[in-house]
Structure formats: C-alpha cells, structure tokens
Amino acid sequence: MNARPAVVLLSGGLDSATTLAIARAEGYACYALSVDYGQRHGTELEAARRVAAALGVVEHKEIHVGLDAIGGSALTDPGIAVPDRPQVGIPVTYVPARNTVLLAFALGWVEVLGGADIFIGVNAVDYSGYPDCRPDFIAAFQRLAQLATKAGVEGREFRIHAPLLTLSKADIIRRGTELGVDFGLTVSCYAADPEGRACGRCDACRLRAQGFLEAGLPDPTRYAAGAPNPGERR
C-alpha cells in the first residue's frame, strides 16, 4: 500500500466516525485505535468495531488502560452520576488526562508504522467544556510529539489533525453524511444501556439530537425504553 499511514482515534461516537471518514477521503491508509480506558459501558467500543469494519480500516487496534483506577469522572466512576442537565464550567464527565493518554498511544503506534499523522475528533464548538478539546492543547501535543519521539528528534514532522475542531455538530453530521458514514452504527450517549440505546438526558444526547435537527437530517439514534427523545422536545 502506497498511501501514507495515519492513526485515527476511534471512540465509536459520531465525531470520531466522521473523523475516520475524513482521513480516508484524504487518501490516508487508516489504522483505527480505540481505547478501553475504564468507561462505564462497553457499547461505545462495540460501536467502534462496527464503524471500523464499515469504513474499511487497514487495522483496528484496541488498547486497555484503567483510568477508572484514578476516577474523578462520571464516565469512569459509577459513584458519580452522569448529569441530566447542562453544567457550568468543566463538567463531571471530563475524564482527567484522557485525550493526553489516547494521543500518547496513537503517537507510539504511528511512529512504529513509520507515519507522521494522527487524527482525533475533538471539537471546540459543541464540546462540553473539556480543556483537552481546545486548539491550544492540540498544538501543544504536536510540539510534544517532536520532542518525545526518536522519529521526531531525527526529523520526522508529526501532525495532529483535528478536522472537526471548529465545526458545529450539525456541520459534523452533514460532513459525515456526505462521506457515507452510517451514524446508526455509532453511540454517543454517556449513559447508554447494554444494548447501546441512549438515555436521552445527558449532554452528549442533547448535542447529538440538536445537531441532527439543525442539519435537517433524520436522527438514527436508538433510545432506551422510557427515555426522552431530546430532539422531539424542541
């Protein structure tokens, strides 16, 4: 394969699925990386497997790291409730050091592959206040990649691609749809049930539903029995 290799962080949500589709459309040989970091449910990892298969990656690797041992987030500590309404400031769904850890694994893999490109689906418009979704963080990690790797010291120029950084959720959905992403394969909910059905109450559910409304496209999200559909309440 002559295409340049790129590692794409794939969580199983609609943002990372769109990011993978963008990387593929740009001609990269895509290696998808999903991380089991101790999140509350495994349905997003199952979604990542579906998306990787549907979009035809070269390889899909899963890495396990226990950020739940650290805790401090509603996504890794079952003792902290997932909020059902917007929060002021950085919400309890922030996972300490998550994107730093994920990018570090992606950096190691892309160096081994002989590549220089990493794709991550962070977003600074519809994001939930997370500090590791900001442009400054992405730029800083790219600088770190040059300093922290053998390849970087020897002259390879690493690039951290964040193609969704300045897009609205509606724009992301439109772009993914144009590239053939089946959003019915994805799971975005912070508190999805074991079958991957959404709670309809968390911040991720609200942002996703609003995105489909604003994009003017049908929302394929499956909701748990009795769960509200945030798109229908508006």
Rank of each mutant, 00 (worst) to 15 (best):
G216N: 13
P220I: 07
R201M: 14
A25H: 13
Y94D: 00
G66F: 11
N123I: 02
E59Q: 14
R50T: 01
A21K: 03
K61A: 13
L9D: 06
G114D: 02
L144T: 12
T166F: 15
G184Y: 09
L113R: 08
E59K: 14
L33C: 07
K150I: 13
L14W: 00
A81C: 08
L113C: 12
Q146I: 06
V95E: 00
R98D: 07
C133A: 13
C133S: 11
A170R: 04
N99A: 07
A227G: 13
G38K: 01
D68Q: 07
R175E: 09
E178K: 13
G200H: 04
T100L: 15
G180I: 05
D132N: 08
L185A: 06
R222P: 07
V57N: 03
S11E: 07
A104P: 05
F119D: 00
A32F: 05
V110H: 04
G155A: 12
F105Q: 05
E154V: 10
L10A: 04
D77E: 07
P5N: 13
A53E: 15
R156E: 10
A6E: 02
A139T: 13
L20P: 02
G12N: 01
F105C: 03
D117F: 01
G231R: 09
R174F: 12
R156V: 14
A52T: 09
R49A: 06
V51S: 02
E44G: 11
I160L: 02
G115R: 01
F141W: 10
A162P: 03
T166P: 02
A215K: 03
T100Y: 12
E157R: 14
A139G: 13
E44K: 08
G56Q: 13
P131Y: 08
I118S: 00
G114N: 05
A29C: 06
V82S: 04
R233Y: 11
V110I: 15
A52C: 12
G13I: 00
P228C: 14
A170G: 14
Q87C: 14
I120M: 09
V187R: 08
D68Y: 07
R206L: 06
A162V: 00
D68V: 01
T186L: 04
A3D: 12
